[in-house]
Simulated scan of single mutants.
Amino acid sequence: MLKWLDIIRIANNGNPSPEKRVEKTNEEWQLILTPEQFRVTRLKGTERPHSSDMCSYFEPGKYACICCNTELFDAGEKFESGTGWPSFTQPIKENVVAYHKDSTFGMVRIEALCNICDAHLGHVFQDGPTPSGLRYCMNAVSLRKIVVNESKITFGGGCFWCTEAIFQQLKGVVKVESGYSGGEISNPSYREVCSGMTGHAEVIEVTFNPAEISFEDLLRIHLATHNPTTIDAQGADKGSQYRSVIFYRNDKEKDAAMKVIEELQASYNAMIVTQLEMFEHFYKAEAYHQNYYNNNSDQTYCQAIINPKLKKFKDLFKENLKEQVTL
């Protein structure tokens, strides 16, 4: 998660390398953009505040650069800033937005540009909501809303290396990321979480297509692929960071989770102790934790711990596996 010091560091030391570049002459941009789009994105203009109803839309989706169609922001990071411009707390990826010092109008600001095509988007300020404290104040005319049929669910059931490996195999799952939720500090490190002092749980955040797999089915698989009857423990892993937990984002999700737990309770001799907590923040874990099993499948832990769990999972949920997964 980017914070203000990260933005300053990037602006001073150089932007991350983009995955690609799109370059056109001004004449070529004028052929594909409206006059207002060209004025704002290519000539660094600013649209009038409250000139777009994009500020008031918070439906799921993504926001792409109007010039090159690069996805820049997720609607989940959008908030009502009251400024009259669409505001976000984070970009989709750290390398899709570039940052430059802007000394116009007698002040120093941080300009935000599309890192792919250099389109002017707006500015970044340090008066946004926690935990990042950032406000990406964007010109609506610089963005294009993309409607996507995706939702997110966040839960923990022991070591996230195991849970990530399982949920990556499911049809309808778009992305799985390992991280931390439910704690008391911002941007915790793995070492801090492992101390048990931060209150975070090791979790995965699953992005999925509800048309292919339901929220309830993901919970059923979650509860069936770890032990939901042990408090703060999964096998040899002990501590609150390994607790069984489901983070719900609204009352509808909370009610659905309670019904699934009640439905599955009859399958267990002991009481299901999975915690239900209101989702607040997901902090993505360090890079070496992401896609851990696929990158380290020959390691002893993967062979001894994850492989047996994967086999059991595949036996139980054959019909839910992606087509390329073989037993």
Results as ranks from 00 to 15, higher is better:
residue 40 V to D: 02
residue 101 K to C: 01
residue 144 R to V: 12
residue 279 F to K: 08
residue 164 E to K: 01
residue 22 V to L: 07
residue 55 C to T: 15
residue 127 D to Y: 03
residue 280 E to K: 15
residue 190 Y to C: 05
residue 117 C to E: 00
residue 74 D to F: 00
residue 93 K to V: 02
residue 65 C to R: 03
residue 85 W to G: 03
residue 123 H to Q: 11
residue 317 F to H: 08
residue 89 T to Q: 10
residue 278 M to E: 15
residue 321 L to S: 04
residue 280 E to I: 05
residue 146 I to Y: 13
residue 213 I to N: 02
residue 84 G to S: 09
residue 6 D to N: 13
residue 53 D to Y: 12
residue 60 P to V: 11
residue 16 P to D: 08
residue 237 D to V: 02
residue 276 L to P: 06
residue 64 A to S: 14
residue 262 E to C: 07
residue 268 Y to H: 13
residue 15 N to K: 08
residue 80 E to A: 15
residue 70 T to Y: 04
residue 225 T to S: 14
residue 40 V to E: 06
residue 73 F to W: 09
residue 71 E to W: 03
residue 121 L to S: 03
residue 320 N to G: 02
residue 94 E to S: 13
residue 314 K to Q: 14
residue 56 S to T: 12
residue 263 E to W: 07
residue 52 S to Y: 07
residue 232 D to H: 09
residue 36 E to K: 13
residue 225 T to K: 05
residue 323 E to K: 12
residue 25 T to M: 06
residue 316 L to P: 07
residue 52 S to D: 13
residue 16 P to Y: 01
residue 22 V to P: 01
residue 280 E to Q: 14
residue 293 Y to Q: 08
residue 147 V to K: 13
residue 283 Y to L: 10
residue 122 G to H: 03
residue 297 S to Q: 14
residue 10 I to V: 13
residue 322 K to H: 09
residue 182 G to M: 09
residue 118 D to I: 08
residue 250 N to H: 10
residue 142 S to F: 07
residue 116 I to F: 00
residue 193 V to C: 09
residue 34 T to W: 04
residue 254 K to M: 13
residue 38 F to Q: 04
residue 3 K to L: 07
residue 32 I to S: 12
residue 268 Y to E: 11
residue 141 V to Y: 07
residue 247 F to K: 12
residue 269 N to Y: 04
residue 216 E to M: 01
residue 206 V to Y: 00
residue 266 A to V: 13
residue 32 I to M: 13
residue 310 L to H: 02
residue 234 Q to Y: 06
residue 326 T to L: 14
residue 8 I to S: 03
residue 267 S to W: 09
residue 40 V to P: 07
residue 217 D to Y: 00
residue 157 G to K: 04
residue 296 N to A: 10
residue 269 N to W: 00
residue 68 C to G: 01
residue 12 N to P: 07
residue 324 Q to C: 05
residue 20 K to E: 14
residue 135 R to P: 10
residue 219 L to M: 12
residue 46 T to M: 14
